[in-house]
Nucleic acid binder design. Structure first.
Length: 690
DNA sequence: ACAAGCAGTTTTTTT
DNA sequence: AACTGCTTGT
């Protein structure tokens, strides 16, 4: 055996010799995390304990002590937080942290795969399937099998795609996953397994990767190819992971691979805030971390700097109901504060008016709009409020909910770009072919077969084989596509060419809201300008979808930083002076989908916990007592079960009382809107009190 | 045989 | 708003 020489490691750096006064900026626990030595470190950090701050200072500290920024990898869950952290760390050190690498797991994996994907048989121009594209691929295979097997009822494409993805994210077989989560589909086990296998083959043959592939293929690449692993991990002197409680098994494996050369891995998280179980997150990752990584240093951050004690008392009470007890009690210095309030509103119009009114009052008092947030369980919970905010001219942005790149018309334009980028992308081909009048699934499939038969000339076609009904239209499409391949057009120019080809088709298909959709397209053309090439545009859009927000707002207030509307999931890691949690209804939070599954119900509880702990000073939880549903009309709704039996000393209850102002003009003679029949005119809303 | 249009149902959360 | 299944039209 060769002789081994043990090299002594010097400590990273002494605090006193650095350019930032870390001692002054951090508390003792934070300082310990920031200045931790090499090796695996787990930082367990409760909500609002300065987790982000600690990570930022850690990055700065490493750079400050001579680690090259390019050798630091910071993995986060959203691009927003990655960008923010690197920017903030850079600000600490005059821009020296700008070259820190990282981003979301998915984007970092994409980088690795673009460079080394050839080793596992993927071309470097592969295109990315978002989950609805993935469902479209599944649907192609589903229909093939459905026509072969005579079954009447069959799981839908989204369900099938969800099953395939769910199993892969948990690193389980389809069988294991079905037994646990969808026992009712066990009779389809064979078919689903077959579709799953076919799906994998289809993607491989067409140069496609879905979100799960970005993670699993990277893990596969790194575990099978030692040389690649050494190159990639060799560049990761320090690996830092945020929100570790939300990683799944694949991600935990990736983290281990990335830190396999240098062994410097710091993960930060809070088991009480694990809210991505539905996508395979397993908070056991954080609990078992010290066992999996020998000699882990475990550090805890417990002092909350964000919220008043009143808000923390409520949060502690909520999380104490969890079956898996988290023995963590947050405490704060801010003992003076308002009690969180629970508002019972008659219906969702009342709820929206209440929220809007309080927002306006607080803005008068000097709370910035951007320091207030309205949180909700699902994207559509805020529809009514959005209308009200628009009416009052309050600017807002919405996180979560519909994404620009998920709108059908944007996907159509993107599909054209994808085909040019990767002519083997069959889903994209299908999409653009079926936009043409006279071409449906069948014809599209046939054309595709012809295209696939001559891979060298993907944008040429033998016109004699087509019905004269659409041959002209096909030719126009191919001429357009060829013009994009051969020229040196910028991405924006390419998008413009596509849009002008596409607009007439759009008009035919979505005549009703043609105008609105055209505006989106223009918006999108403008967006394309910030991208240098097609591939970057496509993958950025797939991995960092742009929120589609209604920003139709009064120009006077346009420059004011907007109010934040957000799903609870998208608000993770953020904090606000004032938080409104709306639609706190049983069946919404907790979601009716979680009924009967104890683990799922508990995740809903953690979701409430996350929402509550976003607030620094003021917290309003509200719910409408009546809900509408098409056809079934109105029905009585019940407040969230999580709010039942919370002592009044933790959560004060309030109700809304309508008050007419004597100074206001009488109601107009004719109601302006149908709803004015039920409620007084909008003007009265101005003086509503509670 | 295939596409288009209509009616009725169904919508979690994200990369 | 989007998806599915059904009916009608070419």
């Amino acid at each position: 055996m060769a002789r081994q020489f043990v090299l002594k490691r010097e400590p990273i750096q002494e605090v006193s010799r650095l350019s930032i006064d870390y001692r002054a900026a951090l508390n003792e626990q934070q300082l310990a995390a920031v200045t931790a030595d090499r090796g695996p470190v787990l930082v367990v950090a409760g909500a609002g304990t300065g987790k982000t701050r600690t990570l930022i200072y850690r990055v700065a500290y490493l750079v400050d002590s001579g680690v090259r920024p390019e050798e630091i990898v910071l993995l986060t869950f959203t691009r927003r937080s990655a960008r923010e952290m690197i920017a903030r760390a850079s600000a600490l050190l005059d821009g020296r942290c700008e070259n820190v690498r990282g981003g979301t797991f998915h984007s970092y994996c994409l980088e690795i795969l673009r460079r080394h994907g050839k080793r596992i048989g993927f071309p470097n121009n592969f295109t990315i399937l978002d989950s609805s594209d993935a469902a479209d691929v599944v649907d192609i295979l589903r229909l093939q099998i459905k026509s072969r097997i005579d079954k009447k009822r069959f799981p839908r494409k989204r369900t099938l795609q969800g099953i395939i993805s769910g199993a892969r994210n948990r690193d389980e077989t389809v069988q294991e996953y079905l037994e646990q989560r969808f026992p009712q589909f066990m009779e389809y086990l064979e078919i689903i397994s077959e579709i799953s296998a076919e799906y994998g083959r289809y993607k491989f043959n067409h140069g496609l990767m879905d979100y799960d592939d970005l993670l699993t293929q990277t893990l596969f690449l790194l575990s099978e190819h030692r040389d690649v692993r050494n190159i990639v991990a060799g560049m990761c002197k320090h690996v830092l992971v945020d929100e570790y409680q939300d990683t799944n098994r694949i991600q935990a494996g990736l983290v281990r691979m990335l830190s396999s050369v240098h062994g410097n891995l710091m993960v930060v998280g809070d088991d009480a805030q694990s809210i991505y179980r539905f996508r395979g997150a397993d908070f056991r990752n954080i609990l078992l971390f010290p066992k999996q990584m020998p000699d882990t240093t475990v550090l805890k951050l417990e002092q909350n700097y964000r919220s008043t004690q009143q808000i923390l008392d409520l949060a502690n009470h909520i999380i104490s109901r969890a079956r898996h007890k988290f023995d963590k009690k947050l405490f704060s210095d801010k003992t003076e504060g308002e009690l969180p309030t629970l508002i019972h509103a008659q219906d969702n119009r009342f709820e929206s008016r209440f929220v809007t009114q309080v927002i306006l009052e607080l803005r008068e008092e000097g709370v910035a709009l951007s320091d207030m947030a309205v949180l909700f369980r699902s994207g559509f919970n805020s529809y009514d409020l959005e209308v009200e905010l628009n009416r009052r001219g309050i600017p807002f942005v919405k996180y979560g909910g519909l994404k620009l790149s998920e709108a059908a018309h944007i996907k159509d334009v993107l599909a054209h770009l994808k085909v040019v980028e990767n002519p083997r992308d069959g889903v994209a081909w299908n999409r653009i072919l079926q936009l043409i009048e006279g071409i449906g699934p069948r014809t599209s499939q046939k054309i595709l077969e012809w295209i696939e038969a001559s891979p060298d000339e993907p944008f040429q076609i033998d016109e004699s084989r087509f019905s004269p009904m659409y041959v002209e239209k096909i030719r126009a499409l191919f001429v357009m596509l060829r013009s994009l391949v051969s020229t040196q057009l910028t991405v924006t120019d390419q998008v413009e060419v596509i849009v002008s080809y596409y607009e007439p088709l759009l008009k035919r298909i979505h005549f009703d809201d043609f105008l609105k959709r055209t505006q989106d397209l223009e918006h999108f053309v403008g967006l394309a300008e910030s991208f240098t090439d097609r591939a970057t545009l496509l993958s950025s859009l797939a991995l960092d979808p742009i929120e589609l927000t209604a920003v139709d707002v009064d120009p006077l207030t346009d420059d004011e930083p907007p109010l934040i509307l957000s799903t609870i999931h998208s608000a993770k890691g953020l904090e606000f002076n004032t938080v409104f949690l709306i639609h706190a209804l049983d069946g919404i939070l907790p979601s009716a989908y979680s009924a009967g599954d104890e683990d799922a119900e508990e995740e809903e509880l953690r979701l409430l916990y996350v929402a509550v702990t976003r607030a620094a000073e003021r917290l309003f939880i509200s719910y409408p007592a009546v809900q509408y549903r098409r056809f079934s009309g109105q029905y009585f709704a019940k407040q969230s079960r999580f709010l039942d039996a919370i002592p009044e000393k933790l959560l004060e209850s309030g109700s809304l009382v309508e008050q007419e102002s004597p100074f206001l003009a009488p109601e107009p003679e004719f109601p302006r809107l149908p709803e004015a029949n039920i409620r007084p005119d909008n003007a009265a809303a101005e003086t509503e009190s509670w």
